[in-house]
Design a protein around this nucleic acid. Structure first.
Lengths: 341, 341
DNA sequence: ACCTCGCGCTAGACCGGTTTAGCAAAGAAC
DNA sequence: GTTCTTTGCTAAACCGGTCTAGCGCGAGGT
């Protein structure tokens, strides 16, 4: 005999299938004595639910989906996703919910997967990341009616609830700090312009620079180390080069650090470097990078909690703001040369 | 009406459920004309299979499992896993197979998840990584009878097929290269001693050093940047310090580079640095690191292909050797100071 | 004594597919 | 012309759960 089914347990315990189902799911319909007897039998026979059979009865699939639209080979460069995944898992697995992960090449493919998984009843909900400026995924997920949580905000995300951190405030704190050190020309190596958070950071920098009365420029990139390095090279080659550069990702920041070394620009003497993302990367390089620290693991946990709550009660959609990232000052920032303390 | 079922299609096309099933799965039992009519109707109604219903009939679950036993917060530090995941996905998703991912804290928990997923019929097979010296997971998976592929070898892995690269050969090529440059004292910052590949690399270094008649020492670590840095500091503080260090991971290598800078040891003049793993990390630091390059993405693809083949035909278990990693020389290695070319 | 209620349980429909047994009609073999 | 095969299809069982309708029974109310 293969795996025991509830029918086997029912026979063994001398009750009906229905009674077994009630007992195993802790719902009324059987007496306490019978319930215990059934549980003992189930335990003895090492019974486990068959997830497909459960999902078939219109119930939960017991899994949530995360689809990443990125070029296939670039995943794993960003420590961010590893951290996020770990956080998601910590909460999901505690609730016996599995995570279905898929990496695809484009947003169109991602939407197609959303449709497929939803209609195949493979998942109970989705996590949406990399929110774009006019994100086509929002409407599709709303139409599909699958509970979904957006990571990012507070921009437009339709009726889907989001979990977000205030990166505008974060950018302001960076500029305040650099201005206080005496920097007057700040560059910003931004990420993909299509992302909402890229736009928010660019705007925040512009506003803040105006208030402080200093020069600031944002250069969009594709988040890759190659573009980060190339853009840094271009900036440092200008006659009036910036005394500080803010990088939107730690990979670009490290690449920038390499370029500075290559061009003989000392850090932080000749150039201050700030990373908008913190990870082990920022600590293992030399000099260690000043960076915005946020608890990505905790962020993942929060997203998972929000999604599970939404699945339990689809009417309870609610945005949730997480703590604003704090600036961790390390060795890569200082007063620009020529400034007297 | 909700999602269309094959019953709806059958009614619409004027045939029975069975005929629809035959037609949609491309198997004999219906005429070509009927098949096309059914396919057109299914297309028009936007029918999608209900994965749970399929899995229930004793058929495939349409998913494979990957369980990682690591401290929750450390995932994402190693670019290796991102690459591996991408490779796995590329093949799996082309075959409409999903990947169930879970990160757990210990090997015991990992085994428990294997048991649960297998008995819940959630997955059709498993990918096993981080092969240990006497790995308790092997026996469990063999007992469960779930198709599984081991990443790593050629050590003991029972009757489970494995996909592996020859890291013994790889280590030999590193030592040959360093010896040719004139190095006579080589250190090796190894990974966790419990891993099979750690042991193989340590043995390979010892054997090779003996043949070349040079001094070599392996220091075990936990793969973390912290231990990598600490061990490097200890090595460089010795009176007779090594002129070259081989790091088992790129994260440790970068951390070691930082320590060298901090202690005023020039690279590659005072110290040559080699990383056993290649990723964007080794290229963005300065100096760029000489490293063993293997195509981790392709490795993931191969593992996925092997697993799918094994699921299709469980008797076809076969080990598969992938190309030996090749040494990519960059700027972090050179002749030791005091050596005349 | 009768009706009502709630409890504890059973029987069986149901979810959406796959698969098998079987049937009618047409074609082939003798 | 009868028998055997093959083709194309249908009906229904089946997978392993969930869930609803309903039944027998003892307790409580009148």
């Amino acid at each position: 005999m293969g795996r025991p089914t509830i029918a086997d347990i029912a026979r063994e315990a001398g009750v009906s299938k229905g009674a077994v189902s009630f007992a195993l799911n802790g719902r009324p319909g059987v007496s306490e004595a019978t319930r215990e007897r059934i549980l003992r039998v189930a335990e003895a026979m090492q019974w486990r639910p068959h997830s497909a059979a459960r999902a078939l009865g219109g119930a939960r699939a017991g899994a949530v989906g995360l689809v990443l639209a990125r070029p296939a080979r670039t995943l794993g460069v960003e420590p961010f996703f590893g951290q996020l995944l770990s956080g998601l898992q910590a909460v999901l697995s505690a609730n016996q919910v599995a995570l279905q992960l898929l990496v695809v090449e484009s947003t169109e493919a991602e939407i197609e997967v959303h449709r497929r998984w939803a209609s195949e009843h493979r998942v109970d909900g989705f996590v949406l990341v990399d929110l774009q400026v006019r994100d086509p995924r929002i409407a599709v997920l709303e139409e599909l009616g699958v509970p979904s949580v957006v990571l990012g905000g507070p921009g437009r995300h339709g009726r889907l609830p989001s979990v977000w951190a205030d990166d505008r405030e974060a950018m302001l704190s960076i500029v305040d700090y650099l201005a206080a050190l005496g920097h007057r020309r700040i560059a910003h190596l931004a990420g993909l312009p299509a992302f909402q958070h890229t736009q928010r950071r660019i705007r925040a920098l512009r506003d803040s620079a105006r208030r402080h009365g200093l020069e600031a420029v944002s250069v969009p990139t594709d988040f890759s180390d190659a573009e980060g390095a190339a853009a840094t090279r271009a900036l440092l080659a200008r006659p009036e080069r910036p005394t500080a550069i803010v990088y939107d990702s730690d990979v670009m920041a490290v690449a920038g650090l390499g370029v500075a070394a290559e061009m003989g620009v000392s850090v932080p003497g000749g150039l201050s470097v700030v990373s908008f993302d913190d990870s082990v990367l920022t600590r293992i390089v030399h000099p260690a990078l000043t960076a915005l620290s946020r608890d990505t693991f905790a962020l993942g946990e929060q997203v998972a909690r929000s999604l599970l709550a939404l699945i339990d009660d689809p009417s309870a959609a609610e945005d949730l703001r997480t703590p604003t990232p704090r600036l961790t000052v390390r060795e890569s920032t200082g007063r620009p040369l020529g400034t007297v303390g």
